[in-house]
Each structure stands twice: as C-alpha cells, then as structure tokens.
C-alpha cells in the first residue's frame, strides 16, 4: 500500500504480451506495420477491450454479458471460436465503451467464477478480424493442445494427450 502514488493495482497491464502482435502505425507521411513492444504497450494502456480466458466451451455470450455488464455498458462481445469447427473454444473479447468500465471488470470479475470456473481477464489491444479463432494446431486454443489434465468444460484431455490415449483405447 503506497499512500503517495495512486497505483492502478490489479487494473494495471499484466506482464503477458501477445507474441503475434502486429499493428499498423500511421504517421504524417507514411504507414507501416510494426510488432514493437512500445506500440503494443501504448495500445494496451489505452484499450477498453479485455481478453477473457479459462471459460468453459459451453459458456454463452449471454452469460458473459450478464456478468460483465455489471461493471459497465458493453459495446460488444466477440466469442473465441475453434478455427476448424467454428464452435466456442473457451475465450472471448469483451469491449466496453470506456476504459474505466473495463478497469472495473478487471478489478471485480477477474478471479471470480462463471459456470463454476475461475474467469481470467487481461487487457487486450483491441479486436481485429481473425483474432477470434484459436491458434492451436487442432483449431482450439494453444493451451488446450498441451494440457495434461482432464477438463470437462474444455473438451476433456488436452489434444496431444487425447491423441495418445485414443489409439490405445482402440486396441
């Protein structure tokens, strides 16, 4: 607790950085694509969009709206989809009209439960077409490729483990 500088605390941007980050920077004379950390951080600090993770595949946009609208007026929700099956794969983006409302969601929703799962929220640079799809090899999120636990809400075992199990079962 510091009395002297009002810190953002839990609503500060986290240490996580999206490795796929790309942005178009417009200058007076030029526009170019960058993946720079500074640009990414600038966007994160201005954004009113959140990445929401660790959702069940069964959690709907309606449920997410119900929970997150308790923190402010929601502009839109983009559900994360399996790249191949086009079904929900356990994450979404929630965009608010204001940064303050998004901050409130990080403060009060992050770490609480939805559909009996602990919801994780983090700042996002803002939704771009294409980012709604899982980046894992099998179409879902990368974390669901490598998981070794059995998670009923996220399609059972991780994809790699599941593939190892299946041939044995068929014997």
């Amino acid at each position: 607790m510091s009395l002297l500088k009002p810190a953002l605390g839990s609503a500060d941007i986290s240490a996580y950085r999206d490795q796929h980050f790309k942005a178009v920077v417009q200058t007076k004379t030029d526009s170019y694509i960058t993946g720079s950390r500074t640009e990414q951080e600038r966007l994160l600090l201005e954004s009113s969009t959140l990445y929401v993770g660790n959702l069940s595949f069964y959690t709907t946009e309606e449920q997410i709206h119900e929970l997150f609208s308790r923190c402010g007026d929601i502009k839109r929700i983009v559900m994360g989809l399996d790249k191949i099956r086009k079904t929900p794969c356990g994450f979404c983006f929630v965009e608010y009209y204001t940064r303050t409302d998004a901050e409130m969601a990080i403060r009060y929703v992050n770490g609480t439960r939805l559909d009996d799962r602990i919801v994780r929220t983090d700042w996002d640079v803002g939704f771009k077409e294409g980012r709604q799809y899982g980046r894992g090899k099998s179409g879902g999120q990368v974390r669901d490729e490598y998981r070794s636990d059995y998670d009923e809400g996220r399609g059972g075992y991780g994809k790699i483990v599941a593939n190892k199990i299946r041939p044995r079962e068929s014997l």
Partner: peptide, 8 residues
C-alpha cells in the same frame, strides 16, 4: 459503489 464491488 458498484454493486459488484460489494459482491466480489
């Protein structure tokens, strides 16, 4: 306060 602040 926001009602969700009390709740959380």
């Amino acid at each position: 306060y926001l009602e969700i602040m009390i709740g959380s």
